[in-house]
């Protein structure tokens, strides 16, 4: 039993090395995960910043918008996961893995851990860009740690969901399109403007969708705004999405 556990770990690490090698050699995907949020950050800070800043009732707009854009970068990372998994599934290599005596969970574990690492690196770059544009946080070390922990948890949840999307997608193109609504979900939340300012139906959606409590928790940690129950909802959403993505991906992978 312990031999099979150590094989599960070493096989997963082998798969992880493979995925990281892909990412290093073909950084285009990581690059796009960083570029899109940075472009949006530039746009919202320099082009719309004054108007939107006035709209949210004063204060520095970059401070308001950064947590939401950081989350958007996390969703962009999940697109890369879905594509990576799907490319493997549509090529013969996965059938080779399946006919070898390797831990069955290693393939998915390698993809998910690799994607989480890639997306975390992307987020660090996006946060760096925000600082360069004037973002200033009130957070101390504890708040930063909590914020990083939350972000990693969010990335893990999104990555498992995307792994499932990558497994069921017929082509890499559809794998790259399917998570796109996820990327736009933060827009219909509290990422850009407070939901209070939205029409009723949209506001109702914005208040109850998963990204709003996550953004509010992140904003609270980084900017010192009140968090309230958002932290618990954020953790509940992340736990739920992780479990859903994990069991869904596993069952799809074992079935195919």
């Amino acid at each position: 039993m312990s031999a099979s556990v150590s094989y599960a770990v070493s096989d997963s690490l082998t798969m992880l090395r493979r995925n990281l090698k892909h990412a290093l050699r073909y950084p285009a995907m990581t690059f796009s995960v960083v570029m899109m949020p940075v472009m949006i950050l530039l746009l919202f800070n320099y082009a719309y910043g004054d108007a939107l800043g006035a709209g949210i009732g004063g204060g520095s707009y970059i401070d308001y918008v950064t947590p939401g854009i950081v989350l958007m970068a996390a969703t962009a990372g999940s697109v890369a996961t879905a594509v990576g998994v799907c490319v493997d599934m549509t090529e013969g290599i996965v059938n080779r893995f399946r006919t070898m005596a390797i831990s069955r969970s290693a393939f998915l574990a390698g993809h998910v851990v690799g994607s989480v690492i890639q997306t975390v690196i992307a987020l660090v770059l996006v946060i760096g860009a925000a600082f360069a544009m004037g973002f200033r946080s009130s957070a101390g070390p504890v708040e930063w740690l909590a914020a990083i922990g939350l972000l990693v948890f969010v990335i893990l949840a999104l990555t498992w969901i995307s792994a499932g999307i990558g497994l069921v997608a017929k082509t890499p193109e559809s794998a790259s399109n399917t998570p796109l609504p996820l990327t736009f979900l933060p827009f219909i939340g509290s990422a850009i403007v407070p939901p209070d300012s939205m029409p009723t139906a949209l506001r109702w959606f914005a208040e109850y969708q998963p990204f709003t409590p996550i953004i509010e928790t992140l904003r609270g940690l980084l900017m010192g705004t009140p968090i309230g129950n958002s932290a618990w909802s954020a953790l509940a959403w992340c736990t739920g999405l992780t479990l859903l993505g994990y069991f869904w991906s596993r069952s799809v992978f074992y079935r195919r």
Binding site: R18, K21, H22, E91, G92, N95, R96, T99, M100, A101
Partner: peptide, 19 residues
């Protein structure tokens, strides 16, 4: 046990194109 003893080369190449 079967998997440990066999090797499979399929009709569609099962190589990692990025490596």
């Amino acid at each position: 046990g079967v998997r440990k003893a066999i090797g499979v080369t399929g009709q569609f190449s099962a190589v990692d194109n990025l490596l």
